[in-house]
Computed example of a mutant assay.
Amino acid sequence: MSITDAIRRLQARVGARPDGVVGPATVAAIEAALNGKAPSLAMRASDIEQLIDDVIKREGGYVNHPHDRGGETNWGITVAVARANGYDGPMRNLPLATARAIYRKLYWTAPGFDRIGALYPRVGAELFDTGINMGQRVAAQFLQRALNAFLGETVAVDGRIGPRTETAVGEFKRLRGREGEAVLVAALDCLQGVRYIELVEGRPLNRSFVYGWFAHRIGQA
Rank of each mutant, 00 (worst) to 15 (best):
A80C: 11
A80V: 15
A82N: 11
R83F: 09
R83L: 09
R83S: 08
A84M: 13
A84N: 15
G86C: 08
G86K: 07
G86P: 04
Y87P: 05
Y87V: 11
Y87H: 07
Y87K: 11
D88E: 11
G89F: 00
G89T: 05
G89I: 03
P90H: 09
M91F: 07
M91I: 07
R92S: 01
N93K: 11
P95S: 07
P95L: 09
P95D: 05
L96D: 12
A97M: 08
A97R: 05
A97D: 14
T98C: 10
T98I: 14
T98H: 11
T98Y: 13
A99G: 12
A99K: 00
A99R: 05
A99N: 06
R100N: 05
A101M: 02
A101L: 02
Y103M: 01
R104K: 10
K105F: 11
L106M: 14
L106H: 14
Y107E: 02
Y107P: 00
W108F: 08
T109Q: 14
T109C: 09
T109V: 15
G112F: 12
F113S: 03
D114G: 07
R115P: 01
R115I: 08
I116Y: 13
I116K: 09
L119D: 02
L119M: 10
L119C: 00
Y120M: 15
P121C: 06
R122F: 01
R122Q: 08
R122H: 06
V123A: 10
V123N: 01
V123Y: 00
V123I: 08
G124M: 05
G124Q: 04
G124K: 02
A125N: 10
E126N: 09
L127T: 02
L127K: 05
F128L: 03
D129H: 04
D129Y: 04
D129V: 02
T130C: 11
T130I: 14
G131W: 04
I132W: 06
I132Y: 01
N133A: 11
N133L: 09
N133W: 03
N133Q: 13
M134A: 13
G135L: 04
G135Q: 03
G135V: 02
Q136N: 14
Q136R: 14
Q136V: 15
R137N: 07
A139P: 02
A140M: 10
A140I: 09
A140P: 06
Q141E: 15
F142Q: 02
L143D: 04
L143E: 06
L143I: 06
Q144V: 06
Q144Y: 12
R145W: 06
R145D: 10
A146K: 00
N148T: 03
N148H: 06
A149K: 14
A149C: 10
A149D: 15
A149T: 13
F150E: 12
F150K: 13
L151F: 04
L151H: 04
L151S: 01
L151G: 03
G152T: 08
E153Q: 15
E153P: 11
E153F: 15
T154L: 09
T154P: 00
V155H: 03
V155N: 05
V155E: 01
